[in-house]
């Protein structure tokens, strides 16, 4: 259950960028920055709340920059995303070494951890108790966002505008909407939630930062987004499945399955799912908007 939260948050983050047809493949990098930000801000201000807030703010700001890059400066979003992933890996190591002089893992007693909450009534029930209670605020927030997204997709103009910005920009512009603003907004949302997902990893579940600690979770979330094709419920379901698969990988005994094979599980599921999706969908699978190498 614990591993579901970052995947779910990252997947929810990516969803609007899929609506606007600017699928952000840089989830992994954004999460890594979020994890790093959570630890650094937490260490500086000594409070988990401040850490989360500042991480979101930093995420939103990077989202503005990223959105500006891909709309105004017409940087291909796929290239930008890939670069973001690699950049995040390098930049966090760089900052870790130059700010803290640490190589590998930063763990200090000063890093706050997010408090976990127990829900009074449910806590006592055998199966439901550990499942629903005793999580960080971010976990509950992620489920609130799921509910909010379900509602928003059905009833709000905003989501319709976001989708229109991707599917028919001209129509949105004619109807008085601002296509660019919608695209940037989607990226801001994406980065803010990715920052949360990262913070959940670094100060929600643990109280440390390790080089490359997202370890492919962002890509798994990306796979979930691709599967759901814009549908929130399916997205949630896929995130839970991937989260469970990751949890199995950690919990399973080394003597039963070698740990590396168990760790492969989420990626294998995602891979097989991708193939199945391409085989079963009528309009021929999903494509990520890759740039053409024109001469």
């Amino acid at each position: 259950m614990r591993l579901t939260t970052p995947i779910l948050l990252a997947a929810l983050a990516c969803l609007p960028t899929q609506w606007t047809k600017d699928l952000n493949v840089g989830l992994e990098g954004a999460m890594l920055f979020g994890a790093f930000g959570g630890v650094v801000f937490g260490l500086t201000f000594g409070s988990g709340f401040a850490a989360v807030t500042l991480t979101i703010v930093a995420g939103a700001l990077s989202g503005v920059v990223f959105g500006w890059l891909i709309t105004r400066l017409k940087v291909n979003v796929f290239i930008a995303g890939i670069v973001l992933n690699i950049f995040a890996g390098a930049a966090t190591v760089y900052l870790l070494r130059s700010l803290f002089g640490v190589k590998g893992t930063l763990s200090a007693p000063g890093i706050p951890s997010l408090p976990t909450y127990r829900i009074p009534l449910i806590d006592g029930i055998p199966v439901l108790g550990p499942l629903l209670s005793g999580h960080t605020v971010l976990t509950y927030l992620s489920w609130a966002i799921v509910a909010g997204a379900l509602f928003a997709v059905k009833h709000t103009v905003l989501v319709r505008h976001l989708k229109a910005a991707g599917e028919h920009p001209a129509a949105l512009a004619a109807a008085g909407g601002n296509v660019q603003r919608m695209r940037i907004l989607a990226q801001v949302w994406c980065f803010s939630l990715c920052a949360l997902a990262g913070a959940q990893l670094s100060i929600g579940q643990l109280t440390l930062f390790t080089e490359g600690m997202t370890n492919g979770l962002g890509f798994v979330a990306l796979a979930a987004v691709i599967f759901c094709r814009g549908r929130v419920l399916l997205l949630t379901l896929m995130s839970v499945v991937f989260g469970l698969a990751s949890a199995v990988a950690i919990q399973v005994n080394d003597s039963v399955i070698p740990p590396q094979i168990a760790q492969m599980l989420p990626y294998l599921i995602a891979f097989v799912g991708l193939v199945v999706l391409a085989r079963t969908s009528k309009d021929g699978g999903v494509r990520i908007a890759t740039p053409t190498m024109e001469s």
Binding site: A223, Y267, F271, L274, G284, I288, T290
Partner: peptide, 16 residues
């Protein structure tokens, strides 16, 4: 042949 997006499939193949 099956139109499986190569960006994602190669990405996931890395980890596998």
């Amino acid at each position: 042949v099956w139109n499986v997006d190569e960006v994602l499939s190669t990405l996931l193949s890395n980890y596998i």
